[in-house]
C-alpha cells in the first residue's frame, strides 16, 4: 500500500505538476492579490469624489472586476473546465434575473407605499384606511 502511494506520488510530481488540475504560478497569485488590494484602495478613494448616482455604479463595477479576478485566478476558472464556468456564470444570471423582475415590480408600486415622507404616508393612510389610525396620527403630529 505504502509502496504504491509512494510510486504514484513520484508519477505525478516528477515534472513539478500535479496529476490532475492546473498549477497556477505563485507570481500570478501574488499579482492577483496586489491588483485586488489596489482596486480596494481605488474604490474607497472614489467614494470621496462625488459623481452623484454614478458612485454606486462605479463601486459595483470595481467589485465586478475584483470578483472576476478572484474567480479566474484564485479559483482557477481560467484553466478549469468550461462547464464549471457556465455553472458559475449561470447562477449569477439567475440572481440577476430575479433582481430585475423584483425591481421592475416594486418600482411600479413603490409610489403607493410609504416612501418615508410623513405627509405622503398620511395621504396613503387616508386613501386606503380611512379611520382611526390616520386620526391618531394627525392628532399626535
Amino acid at each position: 500500500m505504502a509502496h504504491n502511494a509512494h510510486t504514484t506520488a513520484g508519477h505525478g510530481s516528477h515534472d513539478g505538476h500535479p496529476l490532475v488540475g492546473h498549477l497556477v504560478p505563485i507570481s500570478t497569485l501574488v499579482s492577483t492579490a496586489l491588483a485586488l488590494l489596489v482596486l480596494t484602495v481605488i474604490t474607497v478613494a472614489v467614494r470621496y469624489i462625488d459623481v452623484g448616482e454614478f458612485n454606486i455604479w462605479i463601486a459595483i463595477g470595481i467589485a465586478v472586476v475584483k470578483a472576476t479576478l478572484v474567480a479566474l485566478f484564485f479559483m482557477h476558472l481560467r484553466w478549469d473546465r468550461p462547464f464549471n464556468l457556465l455553472v458559475f456564470v449561470g447562477c449569477i444570471a439567475f440572481v440577476v434575473l430575479m433582481m430585475v423582475f423584483c425591481i421592475m415590480d416594486t418600482s411600479q408600486y413603490r409610489k403607493d407605499m410609504y416612501t418615508g415622507n410623513p405627509s405622503a404616508a398620511q395621504e396613503t393612510l387616508e386613501k386606503y384606511a380611512p379611520g382611526a389610525p390616520v386620526a391618531r396620527f394627525k392628532s399626535n403630529g
Binding site: F101, M104, D105, Q108, Y109
Partner: peptide, 10 residues
Amino acid sequence: SGQSALMNTI
C-alpha cells in the same frame, strides 16, 4: 397579491 400590473402582464 398586489404585484404591479406590468409584472402581472409579463
